[in-house]
């Protein structure tokens, strides 16, 4: 004769097993909860890389010297900016030739305040390898520079030094 007393025990056993499985699954996954925000982590890394490069370029060798970036802006030397900036952002362990190119592109401009017209204006500084076409997803990194030079709409050449903002759009293709 078949006895049916064990049925609820069996169901309980199955439920308990399921709970243990779900708990184990939750614990294993707790360290890697993937959220929409995480997709921006590569952007944050690129932003930090560009910010660090610009900050290094704007650090003078001593208290009285000009920084590299100040000299670049003073002489409007786009090719020097290109060389130094690409060198910093692509710099890594090993031979430079092995690592070149890294697929990093940028477009740098200088924003100044136009005193006469009460607006801000931008001057192109340098870019690599081509200008933005609109399909890229660049991050924007900036660096404030005080440069001993007059800018357009500055009310004559005597209005200096000026504080300008170097803006770099940086993207990887």
């Amino acid at each position: 004769m078949v006895d049916e007393r064990g049925q609820l025990y069996t169901i309980e056993g199955i439920s308990a097993a399921l709970i243990m499985l779900v708990s184990a699954y939750l614990v294993v996954n707790a360290t890697s909860v993937y959220t929409p925000g995480d997709t921006h982590i590569s952007d944050m890394q690129l932003e930090q890389l560009g910010t660090d490069a610009l900050r290094m370029m704007n650090t003078p060798v001593n208290a009285t010297a000009n920084s590299t970036l100040q000299d670049i802006l003073y002489y409007n030397n786009g090719s020097a900016f290109n060389t130094t900036f690409l060198n910093y952002v692509n710099n890594m362990t090993g031979s430079k030739i092995d690592n070149y190119p890294q697929g990093l592109h940028y477009n740098a401009t200088v924003t100044y305040y136009d005193i006469a017209n009460k607006t801000t204006g931008s001057l192109p500084l340098a870019y690599y390898k081509y200008n933005l076409t609109g399909g890229e997803h660049p991050v924007r990194v900036t660096e404030w520079v005080i440069v001993n030079k007059a800018f357009p709409g500055g009310g004559g050449t005597s209005v200096k030094p000026r504080a300008v903002l170097v803006e770099v759009l940086l993207w990887r293709d």
Partner: peptide
């Protein structure tokens, strides 16, 4: 190293560009 007038120019540059670009 700079006069009060030059300092005022820098002050205006920083506040105005911060507002318009940042």
């Amino acid at each position: 190293n700079i006069t009060q007038g030059q300092y005022q120019t820098l002050h205006d540059d920083i506040t105005i560009i911060s507002l318009s670009r940042k």
